[in-house]
């Protein structure tokens, strides 16, 4: 079974896709003059795994398809990456990405639910998991088989409302709900463990009644198996996937550096960022 799954996943293609997304995000951000690049790079591989790794059920021709899985980008500041993924899947034209946050565009700096494929309007941190819990609860009440997934930032887990939602989800045995925590260890201005430490994060989720899996958030061969059965899990517990990530992943000078939360490269930085994002993986997906 494991071997077959490994065979099905074309790691090379996923890495190539993630690289395209990062390049697109960089271009969009530079063009717009402002964007959350590093937060987007942090979860790019997770988004690619969800949409290209056979996890989410969706239909670009019918974004409101009733049986679609519901994906809530609770860390709405990463919308720039989600837009790139959705446009590439033909939810809307790729050319529209050039309009990101420009006058008249529907592609806002935080996830705009007017964009085809975007489920909820997010950007106020702490809101997304409650919305996801409501969707999952409705599915349970109505006996629908769609899965609900929310992507949270780790800094976002400092919001009390996340834990209110976590309690509700476990109390109501929402096994159809998955929270993926983009655990890059950084928030807007600093390293999380320097001011309000979240560790032990996995123990917190477990204590709130969730199943927990810890994966490398940049390794498709770990992310995809962890998410594979989100629609048909036997456990009555909601699932938290703690994805260990690197903020700014892909551009070395942005990686793990708080200053890049909302900075755009300028001058020589653009050149070196682009150089680092040249696709250079071999057929096995190794860099």
């Amino acid at each position: 079974m494991k071997r077959r799954m490994r065979k099905e996943i074309n790691i090379y293609a996923l890495k190539k896709k993630a690289n395209w997304v990062r390049n697109k995000v960089l271009d969009m951000g530079i063009k717009a003059g402002a964007a959350h690049l590093a937060p987007a790079f942090s979860c790019t591989d997770i988004l690619v795994a969800l949409y290209h790794g056979g996890i989410l059920r969706f239909n670009p021709k019918n974004p409101k398809w009733k049986s679609r899985d519901r994906f809530i980008l609770s860390k709405g500041q990463a919308a720039i990456a989600l837009y790139a993924v959705l446009a590439d899947l033909k939810f809307f034209p790729v050319s529209e990405l050039n309009s990101f946050t420009r006058a008249g565009s529907r592609l806002g700096g935080h996830a705009e639910n007017t964009v085809p494929g975007v489920e909820a309007f997010t950007g106020s941190l702490g809101n997304g998991l409650s919305i996801a819990a409501g969707l999952a609860l409705a599915a349970k009440i109505d006996n629908k088989d769609y899965a609900t997934l929310a992507l949270l930032g780790d800094g976002e887990c400092q919001e009390g409302s996340i834990w209110e939602a976590a309690m509700l989800a476990s109390h109501h045995k929402l096994g159809n709900l998955t929270a993926i925590i983009d655990n890059n260890g950084l928030s807007a201005i600093d390293f999380i463990d320097k001011y309000i430490n979240l560790d032990p994060l996995a123990d917190k989720w477990r204590a709130f009644g969730w199943d927990v899996k810890i994966v490398d958030g940049h390794a498709f061969k770990e992310i995809i198996p962890a998410l594979k059965d989100v629609r048909s899990r036997k456990s009555g517990k909601p699932l938290a996937i703690i994805a260990k990530t690197v903020k700014g992943r892909g551009v070395s000078f942005m990686e793990n550096n708080p200053i890049w939360h909302y900075r755009i490269p300028v001058g020589k930085e653009i050149k070196s960022a682009k150089k680092e994002l040249l696709f250079k993986y071999n057929q096995e997906g190794q860099r």
Binding site: A120, L129, A132, A133, G134, L135, A136, L137, A138
Partner: peptide, 11 residues
């Protein structure tokens, strides 16, 4: 959470 869950239910 009450309002957030209600939003999810509404969606």
């Amino acid at each position: 959470n009450m309002v957030g869950v209600a939003a999810g239910l509404a969606l």
